[in-house]
Design a protein around this nucleic acid. Structure first.
Lengths: 223, 223, 223, 223
DNA sequence: TATGAATGAGAGTTCATTCAT
DNA sequence: AATGAATGAACTCTCATTCAT
């Protein structure tokens, strides 16, 4: 019997177990921040002052640990999207969403990697399932308000985030705010600008593409 | 070292070595393109029809092999930059450079990864030394022609490439041309657009940042 | 040890313990029957609705738990032997004993494995101490009645059971009754048949042999 | 690239590699003999004075190593069957086959385990494919000569071997010849004897049964 | 010089057993 | 007394790198 990750609400976990789970998550955050998702569970466990087995009691595998760490962050990203979709002014909503997302990812390399895909594809699918609707709404509302060009699609929003994410990923601590320099460029692209020569990716195609991208990267963290 | 400098008629050995080096690089390109930088040296050597040992005669490391590939590709990127810097119309030069670079990276996953940074920082340094001047010229000429906004810097060009590169990396075979959709956005950003709220990164800062980024990623290939 | 010997009205605790012991044995039987002796104690405990720790309160080892099961089953086997030894017709007694034993083992994979030796040798010793006398009596009576050839020994009976047991073990659910096909062969062997070219094993030799056999197999369950 | 087990005849393996392969096989034989098939590859490699990696260069996994060790022995068992099938007197052929097989298994615990099924089911399948025809011929010829009762089937022969094998497995070194005592019993069963109350297993059913038996046991050696 | 065999650290994972709650 | 969290050794397998042939 493994991976109690989603215990439906059964027994509320012993006090020391709670503490150790927290220790593990803290340690994982630190270690992942230091050395990225390729760090070994052994290292994480020992940084937490615990044995490997304990890590495996709490998380079925590395994947789940990473998930646990970033679940919360992902929740907040989704919240950001939902807020963005409900903002009084659609355009402001989009800008706020993109800024917020980029800010979060700037602050946390682990999160960046996770959102860029070094992760379990299936769980990612679910994340996308939650992220798509508000993003779609943002776009729709922007179009209706004449703020977004008609040929923009949901996937464009995702790609924009991705590009900003890359900037943050590369500049890292050295220039943590550089992405802000490119945000307006991309916003302009969404809003006006010259014609876009290539049509957007259909959403399912993008998902599949990202899946295989992730699957590849995932091997790294799985080992 | 046996009778080194001057082997009158028996240079064929040298030729063999050259051929093997080429075979290795080709094989590495193929294998990396297929399976990314996590492919094993064994696989690469065998794809080249050689033994692992031979690979190690030519390259001290998996690192160096990747570098070699990088080197060749970078040579072509630098050529592209130099052509771009000499184009009759500065703006066209820039566009052509960016398109060419992105095209190259689209075609080869390994190259993408390598250019995105899984690499030896020092060699990268030298690459930048060669890439900077033409890129700087492109920008300067563009500014003089009034085609590029005055606050754009060399580093911006690099970042733009990086962002396009990410698009290609994620969409992969599923939508190999999608990056073209975002190129105009970013070109617009370079040309006109709203103000850029954050100043560009000084070049040395970016270099350092990318260095550490690379160092982190490099661990993957080192294993 | 708190106020041990004499707890006047509060014996319920003791009752609980008895119940839990039974629960564990039942669960172990089921799980072992399903998945063999390689099942984990965790699984068994949970099937019993108890914690692992509780299992360890009752049984020092996975060993001992298996023993406990063995013990109960062996009790029944011994009963079978005793009945067989007292049957009005000696031959019928033997046949009934062999059939009954084989039937029991057919029904329960765990029991089969346990009786085939994955077990603590010392406890086994004691089992043999109890099993030998009735088996010996069966043989003696059979000989006196002229139903059993004179050179048959107690150990032969054990070996015959073992052979039938193997048949059941291998055919499993696919042909749970196949062993019945071979029982008459072996019965014939006990009764008449050509000369047996090799003398029977002295009982102590067989015991030692089985001991080491068991010791080897026991490692499997010890892990 | 792994498991050169069946290299078609490519390069003939380096001299030291041949030596090490032999060392590994010897070590495996010893270790398996000592501690059974559950011994770890690590242990075997070190007993051979080699690193684990070397073991994995020669054999894709534990299975293949065991196979390699017993491949030869299995070949000899099959030869025995083929000789048995061609003996001038059918009955003598059968007896010789059974005796020979039992003798071989008596001498080698590892072989016993392998033939009893602690092994890769698929390869076992192939063994059976080679063993069935001669065994079938033995039976057919025996029946035609009136030496074998008409309701005996190929599977019976296999089961008989199995039973003898068990005897040898349990008595081990203590009474290595005891199985000979039971061979005549079973031979009588094949030849005359009382009616067999249960029909023989169809061959495919037995195979499936043994497969699942093996699969279960295989887990032990696979870990 | 080229080869590929050998190495061994290291990764992920499991589970019998102990021990704090 | 019962629980289940913690432990860590053990196991299989991979791969960058070295070195004998």
């Amino acid at each position: 019997m493994t991976a109690p990750t989603d215990r439906p609400a059964s027994r509320p976990l012993r006090k020391d177990a709670v503490r150790n789970r927290a220790l593990l998550i803290d340690a994982a955050r630190e270690v992942f921040a230091d050395r990225g998702l390729e760090a070994s569970l052994d290292d994480i466990a020992h940084r937490a002052g615990l044995g490997v087995g304990t890590a495996y009691r709490h998380f079925a595998n590395k994947h789940e640990l990473a998930e646990a760490i970033f679940a919360e962050a992902i929740d907040r990203v989704i919240e950001l999207a939902e807020h963005g979709a409900e903002a009084p002014d659609p355009w402001t909503g989009i800008v706020t969403f993109l800024e917020g997302t980029a800010e979060m990812q700037t602050a946390d390399r682990g999160l960046r990697e996770v959102l860029m895909g070094v992760h379990d594809p299936e769980r990612m699918e679910r994340v996308n399932d939650r992220l798509s609707p508000p993003m779609r709404r943002m776009i729709e509302r922007g179009k209706q308000a004449g703020q977004i060009r008609p040929d923009v699609e949901v996937t464009d929003l995702g790609i924009v985030v991705l590009m900003l994410c890359t900037v943050a990923d590369v500049t890292g601590d050295a220039a943590p705010d550089l992405w802000r320099r490119y945000l307006p460029m991309l916003l302009d692209g969404l809003r006006t600008g010259t014609d876009l020569p290539v049509p957007p990716v259909p959403e399912d195609v993008l998902r599949k593409a990202m899946d295989s991208h992730k699957r590849r990267l995932a091997k790294l963290s799985q080992r």
